[in-house]
């Protein structure tokens, strides 16, 4: 799945969240989005899945402009993107099974939707079980989500995105709420899955080492602008530190 931003800006009532950003991400690329809180990482991911509408500029997915799509086309496009938000976006009162099943809602008609929610078919359950196995929590299939720990919920969110059979995976700070060793495992898992299934991967995070090691390309954001966009081998630690410390020096 290809993504392209062309002079995209996002203006919220009190802040310019993204300022004239142009970039393109080729199919199968693995990109880490880095930058301090408030730099616009979440907004940028939002532009790509259409959760945020650009105030100016265009967003293209597979060479088609998101803002010109019919609802039907947009839903089809969205179905092909797995999205793991920072808040996980799970339904706490539902079971893991139902939450993961909801990932494929874009392919279901009315009957299929009700069935997935009430009593998914044996094939669906088996497939969900396999997906959960891949992220390492298959034993939680019938647990209610609100009984799981933060780390487990995060893996449910990843499983839901995978169950979509997406062509791209967008994850917003997937490791902000887990300890360092778990963080490594989680991002590693996303990276492995992306390579295994040839997904375009976009992950926002703060960890220089991890970003450099697991992602061939880094995009540094600061105050809504692209600060650097280069192969990770060319991003030095000082460039990375600059990204986070500019605030102090500029003021």
């Amino acid at each position: 799945m290809r993504f392209e931003l062309e002079h995209a800006s996002v203006r919220y009532p009190r802040i310019l969240a993204l300022d004239n950003v142009s970039l393109s991400i080729a199919s199968g690329e693995r990109v880490a989005l880095v930058g301090p809180s408030g730099a616009g990482k979440t907004t940028l991911l939002g532009l790509l899945h259409g959760g945020v509408r650009p105030s100016a500029g265009t967003v293209r997915v597979d060479d088609r402009v998101l803002g010109e799509m019919s609802m039907k086309d947009l839903r089809a496009t969205r179905l092909a993107m797995g999205f793991v938000p920072q808040s996980f976006g799970l339904v706490p009162e539902s079971r893991v099974l139902q939450n993961v099943a909801a990932g494929r809602v874009g392919t279901r008609n009315w009957f299929g939707t009700l069935r997935d929610f009430l009593a998914p078919s044996r094939d669906t359950v088996r497939e969900i079980h396999e997906t959960l196995e891949r992220v390492g929590i298959s034993e939680k299939l019938y647990e209610r989500v609100d009984t799981l720990s933060g780390g487990q919920q995060q893996r449910v969110a990843v499983a839901r995105a995978l169950f979509q059979k997406p062509r791209s995976l967008l994850a917003d700070e997937p490791i902000s709420s887990v300890d360092p060793s778990r963080a490594r495992a989680t991002v590693g898992l996303l990276s492995d899955l992306a390579q295994e299934r040839e997904l375009t991967l976009l992950v926002s995070l703060h960890q220089y080492e991890l970003a450099r090691e697991l992602f061939p390309r880094l995009i540094g954001l600061r105050e809504g602008r692209v600060h650097f966009d280069s192969p990770s081998s060319k991003v030095s630690e000082s460039m990375f530190r600059d990204l986070y410390e500019l605030d102090v020096t500029s003021s």
Binding site: G51, P85, G89, V105
Partner: peptide
């Protein structure tokens, strides 16, 4: 957040 996430999943 759950509704929003499902909405952007189609």
């Amino acid at each position: 957040s759950a509704s929003r996430t499902l909405r952007v999943s189609g």
